[in-house]
Amino acid sequence: MAREYRLGVTRKVANAAVKLLVGRGIPIAGRTGWLLTTTGRRSGADRTTPVNVIEVGGDRWLVSPYGQVGWVHNLRADATARLRRGRTRETWEVEEADAATAGPVLRAYVRKIPVTAPFFDAKLSDPAEAFAAEADRHPVFRLARSRA
């Protein structure tokens, strides 16, 4: 059974360190690390969290390996993703993927960022269909249109 994500003290400290490094442009996780800023769905305030953006099939994807976290809800309310790494800033409109589309992306994500594997029931050797079965627990968003 997949591990459940909990934002404890250790993870908060790790996120703060990653935010500092990525914000300064220092590569994390093989240049997939970015800071994602969304607009809070209730507060309207900016919310920033470290994420990994991967490329699959010529498209760029945001994956939530830890499930239905805050930034997922925020993107569903306002489909604008602002990405930052060092001095590089990008603004994108996002589209949430259906399960069939998400399966291969989730599989590629776990292979590229294996530290997230314990949060999935599907194993690295499983086919994309096994990952598609978990798409409702691990939302996937395609970076659709640049708003630069």
Rank of each mutant, 00 (worst) to 15 (best):
R3N: 13
E4I: 13
E4T: 15
Y5N: 00
R6V: 13
V9K: 14
T10V: 15
R11L: 07
K12Y: 05
N15C: 09
N15A: 01
K19S: 08
K19W: 07
V22F: 00
G23N: 07
R24D: 04
R24A: 08
I26H: 12
P27Q: 06
I28F: 12
I28W: 11
I28P: 09
G30D: 05
G30M: 07
G30R: 05
T32W: 08
G33T: 12
G33Y: 11
G33E: 12
G33W: 09
W34H: 04
W34R: 00
L35W: 04
L36V: 04
L36W: 03
T37P: 09
T38W: 04
T39R: 10
T39C: 10
G40D: 12
G40L: 09
S43H: 11
G44P: 07
G44C: 13
D46K: 15
D46C: 12
R47F: 13
R47M: 03
T49V: 15
P50H: 08
V53T: 04
I54T: 14
E55D: 10
E55L: 07
V56M: 08
G57P: 07
G57L: 15
G57S: 10
G57R: 09
D59Y: 10
D59H: 15
D59F: 14
D59K: 06
R60F: 02
R60Y: 02
R60I: 05
W61D: 12
L62C: 13
L62I: 06
V63Q: 10
S64Q: 01
S64T: 05
S64A: 14
P65Y: 02
Y66F: 15
G67P: 10
L75A: 12
A77D: 05
D78S: 11
D78R: 13
D78L: 13
D78T: 15
A79E: 11
A79W: 08
A79P: 03
A79S: 14
T80D: 08
A81W: 13
A81Y: 10
R84K: 11
R85W: 03
T88R: 15
E90F: 13
E90L: 14
E90I: 11
W92Q: 05
E93I: 09
E93W: 05
E93S: 15
V94E: 12
E95L: 14
E96V: 06
E96H: 07
A97N: 06
A99D: 15
A102Y: 11
A102T: 07
L106V: 04
R107W: 04
A108P: 00
A108N: 04
V110W: 10
V110T: 13
K112N: 03
K112L: 02
P114C: 05
P114H: 08
V115A: 14
T116P: 03
A117G: 06
P118E: 02
P118K: 02
F119P: 10
A122F: 01
S125M: 02
D126H: 01
P127F: 02
P127C: 12
A128Y: 09
A130G: 01
F131W: 00
A132D: 00
A133I: 00
E134C: 05
E134K: 00
E134S: 08
E134T: 06
D136L: 13
R137D: 08
R137N: 04
R137M: 02
H138F: 01
P139T: 03
F141V: 11
R142I: 06
R142C: 14
R145L: 10
S146N: 11
R147C: 07
R147S: 12
A148E: 03
A148S: 06
